[in-house]
Amino acid sequence: MTRTLVIIPALNEEATLPDVLRDLATHAPECDVLVVDDGSRDATAEVARAGGAYVVSLPFNMGVGTALRTGFRYAVRNRYDRVVQTDADGQHDPSQISVLLGELDAGNDLVIGSRFLAGDGHYHVEASRGFALSLLNLLTVLLMGRSIHDSTSGFRGFSRPLVEQFGTTYPREFLSDTVEALLMASYGGFRIAEVPVKMRVRAGGEPSHKSLRLYYHYLRLLIVMGLTASLRGRRSTRRLSQ
């Protein structure tokens, strides 16, 4: 039997978590759920346990990347065949998990649930964020040779081989945890797919970062990507010469 673990990184999400867990139980009853409590100061862990999820609590706030890597390690040790990452604030619709799993079954290693491929245009973003996202899209075209429309999406499916890889190498910084991870998967030769999923408006909680810090993170990501890309060029030539 294929075992699936849904990982939910959660920071102070006691308000929205019960509904998310109830939805998961309804729409994805075959999946186990792991809430990684990222140093919450509210009752996130208790609420998660009451909702029937496994809980791992980090002693202090480490960021989504670290919370997720903890979940990957959990998945590897407990022999799950695949992992789904979803948010604790209810913007990801659990009924769409089957879409991600279907793509994993089709042989993909990383499946990105995209807000933008849906085509019905129901999901609008503000101009500045839209610009940033097109920049990231361009980045994926340049570095991966293909377009990923929603590279910051936190609604993803991971195959077992990729989970093992990410259990040691998953990036910790904001934005890197989505975009850089995507490129790492691409460089590692993993198969990547992007599928349209229906998303909801956030049920609660704040978007994770505000303007100035966001710009810093975009800049940092660009620099890191530039460095990684040049390194990758060297590595691939070395491999060819062997």
Binding site: V55, V56, S57, L58, P59, R69, Y74, R77, N78, R79
Partner: peptide, 26 residues
């Protein structure tokens, strides 16, 4: 320290599960 933090959290979760008499996965 990041790795240690993760490992500590995982170990504590496993201990709690065992103490509760629950069957851990492995």
């Amino acid at each position: 320290s990041r790795t240690l933090t993760e490992e500590l959290a995982l170990a504590i979760a496993r201990i709690e599960q065992l103490e509760r008499g629950g069957v851990t996965h492995a």
